[in-house]
Nucleic acid binder design. Structure first.
Lengths: 243, 243
DNA sequence: GCCTCATCTTGACAGTCGTCAAGGTTTTCT
DNA sequence: AGAAAACCTTGACGACTGTCAAGATGAGGC
């Protein structure tokens, strides 16, 4: 009756692959259950789903560390498991396959990353303040989270070869574009001048700058961070139309 | 006496790993050879070196095709050999290991790529002409050589993980930066205004734009090429200081 | 307390990987 | 022509890969 406990992909639910066992899916097939038993079962299965999703997140988090250290090409499931507190079998229990795991990692990454500058956007009172804080924030994450950033570029490039990565990667890329646009448009508003470039161009510019700086930083150039900071400060002004 | 025919890495020669057999290296150890015999031997070994380098180039070319189709993570030496007209053993005859092969590919790529716009730079008579031709050229190679470009981004990202890739990748990236700068500085000169950004920023901007467009193109957006073209045309004017 | 099911470990499978050695084939030199 | 060296093929090795099944372990509901 019950699948003996392996993760499986739910056709309808593209996200967290639907809880432990197929309990939530099975409910609809059940016949004649009392109202109270039904709601009881709901409560239970929801708890199970939560636990399942929690461990998935925990494993994805751990996998992110390994991936960011080795890169996609050199990371095996066994290596990921070894850097977690579980054995390699668990991965196949919580993820249908490697792609499923990697995608969970990508989504986990997004959660960490995408709201990074919203605080700055919300609190900055002048265009200059926003510009300086943004530049400093970029330089800081370049230095602090270099490994994670290179993983993002790695996975994004993988999506150019692996169609199964495309959808999720594209979605994150778009939310990064929106993140950048919140900054640029707010900067333009504070400066009292319209933006000089559309959202996708603004994102491409900062993404290109950041990637170049990351390359320099990871090849041992310790000035890459402050250089990026200066570049961003000088560039921001050019992204709004001066009167 | 003679190594039985395997490729080996020469400490002094970082490039094509020094010819067939160790002949060129052995000459210095020889004692008492007549002048004519020496020059004769030179002629011979040079021909052998040429042949050796030729086949290396041929194999690297073939490998580039496979790599650009599958990406670094999914390309094996056996797959590369299968897409060439040789067996998998030859690769180990002409290349010391996988890294050696990949680096040969990267250098091969550079030869194809780096002078792409020099013709345009040399013949354009006005700033507008240069701008339009450059934008059209970028859009064209985006469509025609998409697979090769994604491989470049793949390998460049690999260099963030693999230190053995760093030197060669950095060198190519710098010559790409110079390529872009030849265009921008010539554009500025024709426009009669100084460039608004330094070389590294200019390169980062176009690289970012191109990479975003490549992502869109490879995910099925058939407008990516013409969008890139329009973006570049609009952006070029902003890269020189208007009076 | 038992019983059930979720969870996790262990071990194994069929492949594939990079590498290398032995030997056959072709080219080159004398 | 014969010898030597260069070139290429074949087959194998140990290690590693993703995946999966069988079973141990543990917690929760009755």
């Amino acid at each position: 009756m019950t699948i003996h406990g392996r993760a499986y992909r739910l056709g309808s639910d593209p996200q967290a692959a639907g809880g432990p066992r197929q309990l939530p899916a099975r409910q609809t097939e059940e016949f004649a259950v009392t109202q109270v038993a039904q709601s009881n079962r709901d409560r239970i299965s929801r708890r199970q789903v939560d636990k399942f999703a929690e461990r998935r997140a925990q494993l994805a988090d751990s996998a992110l560390l390994t991936l960011s250290e080795l890169g996609y090409a050199r990371t095996s499931l066994r290596e990921i498991a070894q850097n977690s507190e579980f054995s390699h079998g668990v991965l196949h229990y919580y993820f249908t396959d490697k792609v499923d795991l990697i995608m969970a990692c990508v989504r986990q990454y997004k959660a960490h990353c995408v709201t990074r500058y919203d605080q700055i956007v919300a609190t900055s009172r002048t265009a200059d303040e926003l510009k300086l804080e943004f530049a400093a924030g970029l330089a800081n994450t370049l230095r602090e989270d270099a490994a994670m950033h290179r993983l993002w570029y790695d996975l994004r490039t993988q999506s150019m070869f692996e169609p199964s990565f495309q959808a999720d990667v594209a979605e994150i890329d778009q939310s990064l574009e929106r993140m950048i646009w919140r900054i640029v448009s707010q900067f333009a508003e504070l400066a009292g001048a319209p933006p000089a470039v559309p959202p996708d161009v603004a994102y491409a510019i900062f993404d290109g700058l950041f990637q170049q700086s990351l390359l320099k930083h990871l090849s041992g150039n310790s000035e890459a961070g402050s250089e990026l900071q200066a570049q961003v400060e000088q560039l921001m002004d050019k992204l709004v139309l001066s009167s």
